[in-house]
Design a protein around this nucleic acid. Structure first.
Lengths: 224, 224
DNA sequence: CCCTGTGAACTAATTCACAGCG
DNA sequence: CGCTGTGAATTAGTTCACAGGG
């Protein structure tokens, strides 16, 4: 949720929605649904149909009026826009519980974003396998990332080490970082940082939990 | 990143920034800094100073012109707005790696959002301790959440179980859910859902990594 | 006729610019 | 004088409403 380059073309908010559309389209494709309307996508994703249509126009128009979109045409198009048509390598730094969750999560499923290297500083973890990848010494990070042409970094280390890791990642040439450490990372201009801070997310949710509703209204039914 | 109630008062985007301010203020307080200006907070958080001042006006005005804000007055005020002045209980569902990371993360540190119950369906995990809390059977979820007056739920279970868990949480009266499962949760109106999908985050980052820059510009220095 | 594609209208959020006050 | 607080201007994002084409 950090500012960043922006890079003209597609609004950041729309870029965040594209993977959601992608997931819905993958489900549809798996169920052999060949045509889908923006209304159907709206139902599946929770965004409005006009929002979806507008988002799609940012990079072309490939629907058929009166009909809808070809599932796999749209799928392929969004994939391409996101850069997921070519394999994109990810370096995961930090093989703690969060790192492990990420590695497992990523394993196999999302075809074109692959964790290609995992690093940690703990000798007990180095050499272990995690989701099919061997954990390496974080001191080799720069070399490996460069050699493998990795362009995306994930920071899942304690706050105290996060900045040093980010620095090494940038030095090695990554172009975007997903940061889970509860600190603001200083990166060179042009490197996109996305922060996901688990405790901050909980804290802002607290606002919605605390507010208005009297604690008496316990127990809510669906579709009242 | 789900719509939700909105609840009038403070814009959602601002609510998301408040915890960031809070963290900066906690750091300052720990370093015995008594006064802080919006410019200084801007430097620490990465948001603009006018943004910060504007956000603060949503719930009052407590700075001193020509001077700045009293660190602990502001701290206390934001805490109160977020509802963090009173202890707020969280139910964590799913004691896998992600759940464990969250439990560890939360342990001790952020004073007023506490994980008060952890649930799982795996008999091997039930009874184990995690960050100072014993893992319970998910079948007891509704009863325990109700008894303990828990108002916040965290869904860290596989996609296939997420909807059932969300339903149980809502039935038990939670008012907001932090969802890590890669599905759209159906919840009754009035329940705020915040989705954090780790693979989607990676995918949207891919857009920024893939774009423009030729892969030749490897290795970036800070402050060029 | 139906659903896409899109300007136009609207709404939300950010930034500007400066008055006001300690 | 310096920094807050805030309307006003601007910019971004969403929704409306309908023209246009299969």
């Amino acid at each position: 949720v950090e500012g960043g380059v922006g890079r003209g073309r597609i609004p950041d908010v729309a870029v965040k929605r594209l993977p959601v559309y992608l997931r819905a389209l993958q489900d549809l494709a798996a169920r052999r649904v060949e045509i889908v309307s923006s209304a159907e996508l709206a139902r599946l994703t929770g965004f409005s149909s006009e929002q979806i249509r507008k988002d799609l126009t940012y990079f072309g128009s490939f629907g058929t009026r009166g009909v809808g979109y070809h599932t796999d045409v749209l799928l392929e198009r969004i994939r391409r826009v996101l850069g997921l048509h070519e394999d994109i390598g990810v370096a995961l730094v930090g093989a703690g519980h969060l790192g492990t969750a990420l590695a497992r999560y990523n394993q196999g499923r999302h075809q074109h974003v692959h964790i290609r290297a995992i690093f940690d500083s703990d000798p007990a973890k180095i050499g272990q396998e995690l989701g099919g990848t061997v954990v390496r010494d974080v001191r080799d990070l720069e070399r490996v990332v460069r050699e493998e042409g990795i362009r995306l970094g994930v920071v899942a280390v304690p706050a105290s080490e996060a900045q040093a890791v980010a620095q090494a990642l940038c030095q090695a040439g990554v172009e975007a970082i997903l940061n889970f450490a509860p600190v603001r990372l200083e990166v060179p201009p042009g490197v996109q940082v996305e922060n996901i801070d688990l405790s901050l997310a909980l804290q802002s949710l607290a606002y919605y939990a605390a507010a208005d509703r009297p604690p008496s209204s316990k127990g809510r039914r669906f579709e009242p």
